[in-house]
Computed example of a mutant assay.
Amino acid sequence: MVDLWGGTDPLSGADWVHDSATLAFSAAKGMIALLAAQQVQAGALDPLAPVARYWPEFAAAGKDGITVADVLTHVAGMPTLPIETPEDLLDPVGLAARVASRAPDFAPRSARVYHVLSYGTIVGEILRRVTGTDAATLLREKVADPLGAALWLGLPASEDPRFLPALMEPIVPPPAPVGTPEASGAACAAAYRSTLQIVPLFERVDGELGTEPVNGVPFRRALVAGGGLVADARSLARVYGACVAPVDGVRLLDDETVARVSRDWQHGIREPSCLPGAAPTERWGLGFEISHPLNRMLGEGSFGHSGMGGRLAFAHAPSRTGFAFVGQRMTFPAPGQDPRWALLLDALARV
């Protein structure tokens, strides 16, 4: 095992120590995908079944044909959420009820558009309907506690001393898509609106770094399944390691389930070219990101999830390896993957 940490919080001057943790953003989606995979493994959740089998209200407004796999692979046509303010994210059950009553943003399976915030809302509610337990509790009972892993969807107040805020430059709203073919216009418009929905989460109070809603106590305490995970890299690496090999006697997924969730489930559904020069995602696992040109991980057999600003956590089944990188300082290199990943992954690949 290799376990590295270091650096200093520029706001407080506090060192990043062994127990420090911060927001993992969309690396949370990998944990939600893992919880879904465990239910698939147990036979309680069929990825090819309609969502409405488990959540009957979801069938409203023409959504009766959307499957669990459609949601897990971001082809359900529902990337936007019925929210007005960031506070709307703090009530996942009420928000899920509003999602269930809505029509899709565009025809399901007609295009793949990343479900930035809605993924966690929808999959989290599916898990709640299947198990009777919310995703935060499932994560604690089925993943974190067995491994002694420091990761939470809703950070307890008792763990606040380990939290360091995620730091980044102010988010500039993306340019509106232009020149898109009519067939993909609705998908591109929805992708644009869903991206705009995250901008208020990063608006500072009086321009002061660290005052963004994502770093505030209400967001930190809430169950925001698609992006609210608080974790350290060590814990995420242990979790992914336990997906492909026993870690202190704990194995989270069996080999058959690993093979099932880490193959391509996107099935050729295209991602629309909404912005010039954007590289489309052409392959995706069952809820997990799998190796692709902008996130190679350790190549074929890798599955996990990246997170905003440079977070990355995954398993590599052929080498029985778990890896994670989490940091305070968020970077947004364009184009291509975070250069910090390349340094770490090149070193990992050599051993």
Score class of each variant (00 low, 15 high):
90 L>N: 06
98 R>M: 02
101 S>V: 14
102 R>Y: 07
103 A>F: 11
104 P>S: 12
105 D>V: 08
105 D>S: 07
107 A>R: 09
113 V>A: 07
113 V>L: 10
114 Y>K: 06
116 V>I: 15
117 L>E: 09
117 L>M: 09
118 S>M: 09
118 S>C: 10
119 Y>L: 08
120 G>W: 00
120 G>H: 00
121 T>M: 05
122 I>V: 14
124 G>P: 01
125 E>Q: 03
126 I>P: 00
126 I>F: 08
127 L>M: 02
129 R>C: 09
130 V>C: 03
131 T>H: 00
134 D>G: 08
136 A>N: 10
136 A>F: 04
136 A>R: 11
137 T>I: 13
138 L>N: 04
140 R>Q: 14
141 E>V: 13
143 V>H: 06
145 D>W: 04
146 P>C: 09
147 L>M: 08
147 L>R: 01
149 A>G: 09
149 A>P: 03
151 L>N: 06
154 G>M: 07
155 L>T: 04
156 P>M: 09
157 A>Y: 00
157 A>P: 04
157 A>S: 10
159 E>I: 01
161 P>H: 04
161 P>L: 05
161 P>Y: 03
163 F>E: 01
168 M>V: 06
169 E>V: 11
171 I>K: 08
172 V>H: 10
172 V>F: 07
174 P>Y: 12
175 P>E: 09
177 P>G: 12
177 P>K: 02
179 G>N: 14
182 E>R: 06
183 A>L: 08
185 G>N: 12
186 A>K: 10
187 A>Y: 02
189 A>M: 10
190 A>E: 13
192 Y>Q: 12
192 Y>L: 15
192 Y>H: 15
193 R>V: 15
193 R>A: 15
194 S>G: 12
194 S>D: 13
195 T>H: 12
196 L>S: 11
196 L>F: 09
